[in-house]
Design a protein around this nucleic acid. Sequence first.
DNA 1: TTCATTGCAAAATTTTTGCATACGA
DNA 2: TCGTATGCAAAAATTTTGCAATGAA
Lengths: 149, 149
Amino acid sequence: MTTHTDTLAELRASGHRITPQRQIVLEVVENSAEHLDTEAVYQRAHEKDRNISLATVYRTLAILKDEGLIEQRYLARDHAREHYEPVGAPEHYHFTCLDCHQVIEFQSPRVNQMRAELEAELGLLILQACLCLEGYCQSCAAKRAAARP
Amino acid sequence: MTTHTDTLAELRASGHRITPQRQIVLEVVENSAEHLDTEAVYQRAHEKDRNISLATVYRTLAILKDEGLIEQRYLARDHAREHYEPVGAPEHYHFTCLDCHQVIEFQSPRVNQMRAELEAELGLLILQACLCLEGYCQSCAAKRAAARP
DNA sequence: TTCATTGCAAAATTTTTGCATACGA
DNA sequence: TCGTATGCAAAAATTTTGCAATGAA
């Protein structure tokens, strides 16, 4: 398990300076249960430091992501927006219903299986896997089938 | 294999009108080998109809996507931008190297396996699967390992 | 001290929307 | 004819960037 301190050390080791702003952004991502997009990270960071700027949050998230210190996830419902979470969070992906818009989180061993296969076959080092599914949930699929026989 | 005419019929059946602009947008997506983002679709559509507007392209792509008549794909390299392609294109996903930025296309039976499992277990109807991987390709991974022993 | 980092504001980019007009069915 | 769809232009939403001042190492 990577700790906050470890992550800061890695950040420094990769040639970046440790600033209060960066510590705050990291804390926010590490301590949130949900996936936060950039705006949400900014809002929470802003509560801790009234002077932090949105530009700094953008820049910091980009650095942390580039260094592999946080992960990005995309929700299908709002795919264009990146959501961040700490590395090491339990693996899960998202299915979004196109009709009722509920998000169903799921796990599947197939993803890691595939990652391992690709790494072995193609020699890749896979750091991030983005997987999101869209379609209709059970009840909405049933409704649509009934509406259009 | 769904034909252009079939797709238009489905579009009409779902309550939308067939306009020259919509036909052009559909043709562009169907006839392009690459994945086009909205701007690229607009550019190609614009060559065929100098008066077509970007707003119409946005609106048309949204409709076609909502109706499941085209699919969206996301490339990890440029994840925030949607890329469209016709339904029924051969399954493939993307890995992007964070260093040299090359995009490696790959296939994996694990995806369909997972889709089938999820549909069976959760009763979902999965229409779109977005999967993109990021990390380092074989040579870039080797370089990084050498640079930071 | 030195240079990476910051905040601010402006710019750039991308997408959406209001509305009068045009046109498909 | 009737109401959807369009083009335009303006607005909204999101992200990036220039620059002088600040502050981490």
